[in-house]
Design a protein around this nucleic acid. Structure first.
Length: 328
DNA sequence: AAATTAGGTTACGCGAC
DNA sequence: GTCGCCAAACCTAATTT
């Protein structure tokens, strides 16, 4: 799986090695495919973004280095945890030993008849244990769904892990009873996206989900409440990169839009408004301020808001932004 | 393409019936 | 169990500029 991704430039210096410290730029091996520059940087949500054109180059970026530091060989042995990485996206966290199908022992010798029958029994047992236990089957089904939907929406792996963790907790707290697996899986993904600061609207989730929005939001509220998870309201700013990269606008506009949101939200314009609509309007405002032409229609399409909403929102933002007794 | 207008829909939980 | 509550935000659709 994607855990196998190699990523040499990001591997940290290990103690005990004799190689000299190489103070390499953390993301130097990501060159932008559009404008041929190496001027890229990594945002805190796991995306690598080109500083020139705003193109998102790498979305599923996992740090392969250890999450610990050691000061000497003894300590390294102590802290090292060997084995394949744990993942939340598999029903058994990818942890169990699988019995393979070959009737050979570890040295490649054939097994005796008795041993062979024993191995067959073990295989059947394992298969039953992992597929017949209702809880495990539930998780398999749900995680399959989460992965499918996340792929369709282009959601990075880190968020999938969060989503699967939320689902697992819901299952363990016995919150699924009376709700569909699909519905809870969808709402876990929605919640995971928000937690990971890569929000997707309920509309977005619905387009890839097999259940309707009402059920998703119901399950979402219920599970958040029961698990005691606090969710910060989504800032319109978090939608800007996604909308802009779907549009054909310069990153000047993107930056400006973020600025517009900051300033106008400060003035209290954003409260009570839908974050997607507000972000959409800010992009339109920014495009006008930058002298680039974009149509309200195009923005409304990628943001899944109506043109009318953009129309109502943007003059309010524009006013604050061009107000003489307000700086900028 | 953008603006205007009109009219309908949504979502929530709660107490009352 | 369902009725009503009630406003602001948002939507669609038709029309005009």
């Amino acid at each position: 799986m994607s855990h196998q991704m190699k990523h040499n430039a990001r591997r940290r210096q290990r103690p005990g090695t004799t190689e000299p410290e190489t103070p390499a730029d953390a993301t130097e091996d990501f060159a932008c495919t559009e404008c041929e520059t190496n001027d890229t940087s990594q945002s805190n949500n796991g995306e690598v973004v080109c500083n020139e054109c705003g193109l998102v180059i790498e979305e599923e970026n996992i740090d392969q280095g250890p999450d610990w530091r050691a000061f000497g060989p003894a300590e390294r042995d102590e802290k090292s945890r060997v084995g394949s990485p744990l993942t939340e996206t598999m029903h058994d966290k990818g942890l169990t030993t699988n019995i393979d199908w070959k009737n050979k022992d570890a040295y490649g010798n054939s097994l005796s008849g008795r041993k062979r029958r024993q191995m067959n029994r073990l295989r059947t047992q394992q298969e039953r244990a992992s597929t017949k236990d209702p809880q495990e089957r539930n998780l398999r089904h749900a995680f399959g769904e989460i992965d499918r939907m996340a792929s369709a929406l282009g959601v990075p792996q880190s968020v999938r892990e969060i989503s699967c963790m939320i689902y697992r907790r819901a299952l363990e707290a016995d919150l699924i009873r009376g709700r569909s697996i699909e519905g809870v899986a969808s709402s876990s993904l929605y919640a995971g996206c928000r937690q990971g600061n890569i929000p997707r609207s309920l509309d977005d989730i619905e387009t890839v989900s097999r259940v309707e929005q009402l059920e998703i939001s119901r399950a979402y509220r219920y599970i958040m409440r029961e698990l005691g998870l606090e969710m910060k309201p989504v800032s319109p700013k978090e939608h800007v990169p996604r909308f802009c990269s779907s549009l054909d606008v310069s990153n000047d506009v993107e930056r400006k839009a973020t600025e517009v949101i900051e300033v106008t939200a400060e003035a209290g314009l954003a409260s009570g408004k839908s974050p997607t609509g507000f972000a959409a309007a800010a992009i339109y405002t920014a495009a006008m301020l930058c002298g680039e032409d974009t149509t309200q229609r195009a923005i409304s399409e990628v943001s899944k808001t109506s043109e009318v909403t953009i129309r109502i929102r943007y003059p309010e933002q524009m006013e604050i932004f061009t107000d003489p007794n307000h700086e900028n």
